[in-house]
């Protein structure tokens, strides 16, 4: 009768066969300085927007520009900031594990462009001397889009993707 249990050596062999695969996924690929600049800028930008909007929403900070609270602007900004926050989290996870990074950056870029176009069509440019907070927000958005395009252009894909291509 054959022994159906696998022994210690066989278990070790199975585990060893996956170790190289794990290393390949957990090892970060080398990125350029410009890529690091873009990813840090994007992280800081989204986190600053997300935190400051939530602080305004909960009344911790009272905005100097009261128009932020008018016409449901704040609700729209917070909904968009939430979307961007989850995309940022997904982007950082994809970068850490070296999988689908360009795809998630492309999705984030499309999301941001859609938000930008919708806001422009519905509310105009927001640029107004009487609305300093909204003006700063409007002027900073192109930089965010540039950072996303920069991430797409400067990302150095992992070796396994280069071999596949």
């Amino acid at each position: 009768m054959s022994n159906k249990h696998i022994n210690r050596d066989e278990i070790k062999t199975i585990l060893d066969s996956f170790s190289s695969y794990q290393e390949e996924f957990s090892k970060p690929s080398k990125q350029s300085k410009s890529f690091k600049f873009f990813i840090i800028f994007f992280n800081v930008y989204i986190l600053v927007c997300y935190i400051s909007l939530n602080l305004v929403h909960h009344g911790v900070i009272i905005p100097a520009d009261p128009t932020v609270l008018e016409k449901g602007f704040l609700d729209i900004f917070i909904a968009r900031a939430n979307g961007a926050f989850w995309l940022l989290a997904a982007m950082n996870i994809c970068l850490f594990f070296n999988i689908f990074f360009k795809s998630i950056v492309l999705i984030t870029l499309v999301y941001c462009v859609n938000s930008f176009v919708d806001s422009f069509v519905l509310f105009g440019t927001f640029v107004d001397a009487n609305r300093p907070a909204l003006s700063v927000y409007s002027f900073s958005r192109p930089f965010m889009l540039i950072a996303l395009i920069g991430l797409l252009m400067t990302h150095n894909p992992p070796k396994r993707d280069q071999q596949a291509n």
Partner: peptide, 13 residues
Amino acid sequence: LGLTAWAIAMLID
């Protein structure tokens, strides 16, 4: 991928 992301963004919006 871009068009799908745009369609989902529109639905969520």
